[in-house]
């Protein structure tokens, strides 16, 4: 049983690692935190795996663990307030036309964790409102309101003069 689960877990890790890593990066805003959150999520899945009766929807379950781990981590970080580090923040958008993307990225970074998670799941992972609600453990009404607030924040930060066509590289 353990050996079967180990091999199944290895296959799942190889299959999902890249996409989940990028989703974690979009939510966290930096690669270091994304790595930590992703590893915690994979570890939780590995420990819970033998207890699961049905492994058919395991990728969705992993996504759910990832989002909840991210929100829990953000809640803990809020209590820690500040964290001293000697590492410089990740540099983004080295491609031409990077400034506009940076503006969107900064607007996204300033949002609360839940709003940010909703926007990433809705507009990157293309999940339905119901699936996002399941992943976040909240009602569909909350997802809709968080999504609306997130877009409103984005609209407020970007302003009317922002040109989305300049983002393409």
């Amino acid at each position: 049983m353990t050996l079967n689960w180990d091999s199944e877990f290895t296959q799942l890790y190889d299959r999902c690692n890249e996409s989940m890593r990028f989703t974690a990066f979009l939510m966290c805003g930096n690669w270091h935190e994304a790595e930590d959150v992703l590893q915690s999520a994979f570890l939780k899945l590995y420990l819970a795996g033998p207890k699961l009766t049905d492994h058919s929807g395991i990728e969705g379950y992993l996504q759910q663990i990832l989002v909840r781990t991210f929100i829990a981590e953000r809640r803990r970080v809020r209590w820690r307030r500040e964290k001293l580090t000697d590492a410089l923040p990740d540099s983004l958008f080295v491609a031409p036309g990077a400034e506009d993307g940076l503006v969107v990225w900064e607007a996204l970074s300033s949002m609360p964790a839940r709003q940010r998670a909703v926007l990433v799941l809705r507009y990157w992972n293309d999940l339905s409102v119901e699936d996002v609600a399941t992943a976040l453990g909240c009602s569909t009404g909350t997802v809709k309101s968080q999504s609306s607030k997130g877009l409103q924040t984005l609209r407020h930060k970007l302003g009317p003069e922002f040109d989305p066509s300049r983002l393409g590289t």
């Binding site: 180990d6 890790y13 990028f22 990066f25 979009l26 491609a95 993307g101 990433v120 970007l158």
Partner: peptide
């Protein structure tokens, strides 16, 4: 659409190498 475009542009960036592995998690 702006969000989707931003995410797509970010996806095109080369991510740093991944230091973790399934064996490490196990």
């Amino acid at each position: 659409d702006k969000l989707r475009t931003t995410f797509s542009v970010l996806r095109g960036e080369v991510p740093p190498p991944n230091a973790n592995s399934a064996f490490g998690v196990i």
